[in-house]
């Protein structure tokens, strides 16, 4: 019982933040072999590409280097242009910031199905009351000069 007794008697127990609590590090991510090519096509050609595994007939979006089911390498010939349209698989309306403050205007975030893949992205040009699962949407690209080779080269998805 010694330990429990001590804890109940310990009234001045306190937390410690000696000014070294911050962890000031950052991460830098490459897009990878498939991702690099995926974003090149997005940035240069405004196209969304997937890779298709001919064994299990799955078309991955975004394009991947390998099929996770068959564990086969997906090669150049397996790249397919899947168009820039998709269907809302699910969506959410975000009212709070990361810090828990109310947002001035809620964000519409959706899981958008394209071929057999899902892209998570913002929805735009529609009111949160108008969005529905099954809604057809299309990618709205940023102006070419503003593209950086990342998922934000698509500004948002908008209703067709």
């Amino acid at each position: 019982m010694g330990i429990l007794e001590k804890i109940t008697r310990n009234v001045d127990n306190r937390y410690w933040n000696p000014g070294v609590g911050a962890f000031p590090v950052k991460n830098r991510y490459t897009a990878g072999v498939a991702g690099q090519q995926f974003f090149e096509r997005l940035k240069e050609d405004s196209k969304i590409f997937g890779t298709r595994c001919k064994t299990c007939e799955t078309t991955y979006v975004p394009a991947r280097l390998y099929c996770e089911r068959c564990f086969e390498r997906l090669e150049e010939k397996d790249w397919v242009d899947v168009g820039t349209e998709g269907v809302i698989h699910s969506f959410t309306v975000v009212h709070k910031t990361l810090e828990g403050e109310a947002k001035e205007k809620p964000d519409l975030i959706a899981a958008i199905q394209i071929a057999d893949g899902i892209l998570i992205h913002r929805l735009g040009e529609l009111d949160d009351m108008e969005a529905y699962i099954g809604m057809k949407v299309a990618a709205q690209f940023k102006a070419k000069a503003d593209r950086r080779g990342g998922i934000n080269d698509i500004d948002y998805f908008k209703p067709l």
Partner: peptide, 15 residues
């Protein structure tokens, strides 16, 4: 510094 993502590196070794 590898171009591959962590997943892709894993795939290459595993395959």
């Amino acid at each position: 510094r590898a171009l591959e993502t962590p997943k892709e590196l894993s795939f290459e070794a595993t395959k």
